[in-house]
Design a protein around this nucleic acid. Structure first.
Lengths: 137, 137
DNA sequence: GGGGTAACTGCAATTATGTTGCATCTGCGG
DNA sequence: CCGCAGATGCAACATAATTGCAGTTACCCC
């Protein structure tokens, strides 16, 4: 199973880097409309996940978001950080915090997904807004 | 908008109480098959949410789970607890922990959903199992 | 206790997202 | 440059959420 360098991979990777935030499949679809098929995006993203350069997580609206892995090797992923959605600019990002809540006696936690919605720094009350009109949907 | 007492409400409420864990729509469908329509379950559950006696949250598999609110009034909901799925018995429950992670400077958190998968007390390694053959799916 | 109405229900249909099968195409090693 | 495994496009399917509408019913009011 050797991976190949293809235009599709480049395009998707470039978008993930450019936005430096977590993106949903349908957001990517809008950006590459006409350039490649939905299914190709789907498969490219999942291949990235298999290769450990991207992780995906379920959002509060029931669809996956994909983000570049930062600071975790393919062998050792640490995804115990918080996923944050700004209710104003609708950006989804991975916060640097590491979270390790204490579970009740007898419980073992293996996989986690922490999700918080609110206002990001750029859209904080009192700050000038960051909304970019449909930057994400 | 006055609510009425109907058989459907009773049945769904009774199931939520009986299992005392978070249930998905399709799990409830299996339990009431022939007694009421899917859409009715859907609407009953969402009415419960509006009324503040149930809260719903997105699972890691992309579907909503519904659980009775415990210790939160209709005016003041506190849903900053952890939702836990046991990978063995597949039960989803609300843990009592309250979580308040510190966000980076400038961020304001409003809504949260903490999700952890692992093994619950009953299914902990070394314990006898709790799997009930399709108790949830 | 009966009537009227707003709330509720059932059925059909639609939307959105994820997923798979298969025929075709292509990057790349030899 | 040849061959093939990996990648792609298209069609189709699966599942969950959601809406419209016509018909039913709980319950307030008399």
């Amino acid at each position: 199973m050797n991976r190949r360098n293809t235009a599709s991979k480049e395009i998707v990777l470039h978008l993930l880097e450019r936005y430096s935030s977590a993106l949903s499949q349908d957001f990517l679809e809008d950006r590459v409309r006409g350039q490649m098929d939905r299914v190709t995006i789907y498969r490219v993203l999942n291949r990235f996940c298999e290769d450990g350069i991207v992780h995906k997580f379920m959002s509060d609206e029931g669809k996956y978001y994909y983000a570049l892995c930062r600071g975790c090797s393919p062998e050792h992923h640490s995804h115990d950080h918080i996923h944050f959605r700004c209710l104003h600019c609708d950006t989804v990002e991975c916060l640097p915090n590491h979270v390790r809540p204490k579970l009740p006696e007898g419980y073992t936690g293996l996989i986690s997904n922490y999700w918080i919605s609110g206002y990001c720094r750029k859209c904080a009350p009192g700050q000038e807004t960051n909304r970019q009109g449909g930057r994400q949907k």
